[in-house]
Amino acid sequence: MEPAIEAVGLVKRFGDVTALSGLDLTVPEGTVLGVLGPNGAGKTTAVSILTTLLLPDEGSARVAGVDVLADPAEVRRRIGLSGQYAAVDEVLSGYENLEMIGRLYHLGKERARQRANELLERFDLTQAANRSVKGYSGGMRRRLDLAGALVAAPPVLFLDEPTTGLDPRSRLDLWEIIRELVTQGTTLLLTTQYLEEADHLADDIVVIDHGTAIARGTSDQLKAQVGGERISATLEDPTDTAAAIEALVPLAVGDIESGDPAGQLLVPISGGAAVLTDALRRLDAAGIGLRDVGLRRPTLDDVFLILTGHRAEEDAGPGGLAEGASADDTEAA
């Protein structure tokens, strides 16, 4: 079966800046692709090309079985786009926004009305339906924006950083909604700079940096690429470090890191909880006390650091989850 989204060799330059330098993407029908990368990596440019907003300098793409360059109008009938900046009209009410979008998808007056009400209900916006969007919270706006993308129930959905700038609570709400959509069979391409988000929502992940894919696979595959599990242990007495390393060397599948901070050990292992139990027995036998111990799998943040040499959030400012990205996304075309 033809993939729902397929892009081959996308190149886009803006003057001297190369936003995309030969990006390939494939999203099988009914799956979620997380496009992960820092600000300026080329995520928005890729989405803009796939949603017909921007022409690539090179490359080709098919979305929902239609050639993006040859028949952009037909592509627009089959997609929904919810952008990084909540593109809803502030002055109009939530209902008016959705009804307008329905009319512009040519659903007809009755159907547009009905669909607007359905979506307001589904996105928990019925109370605010007739209020100006100006008074909506950030989370409500994003929900409305996402609802706008769903008006025509498109088979393929593009969400460009759907949760950037949202507080953690609103983010979880939105994840819930997105997961529900996906179980109903929508194909989704999601861009994000939050590793956790890709981990939660995506079947496959493409990590992009400087306009090209630097890694792809499932979350687990990417983690495996970086290295397996590690035991993280904090010794009660840091002077036991040498003895602890000696006790654990037989279990390690690589070099044991230690001393950062003092009394902390990171032991690369393979075998999961059974090895952890073994490790605990050995430390106990050696009379070494532990303050804390756990099995640690690498996060996508580790993946990013190893793949790109810099942390994912580096370019996005000191934002944790709740901080969101700086508004000046230089990649935006």
């Binding site: 593109a87 512009l104 998808y105």
Partner: peptide, 17 residues
Amino acid sequence: EKGIINRFRSLPMAGSA
């Protein structure tokens, strides 16, 4: 500036509208 033009442009509406 507010991104509404991008929304419109992603819809199957007439380009002149």
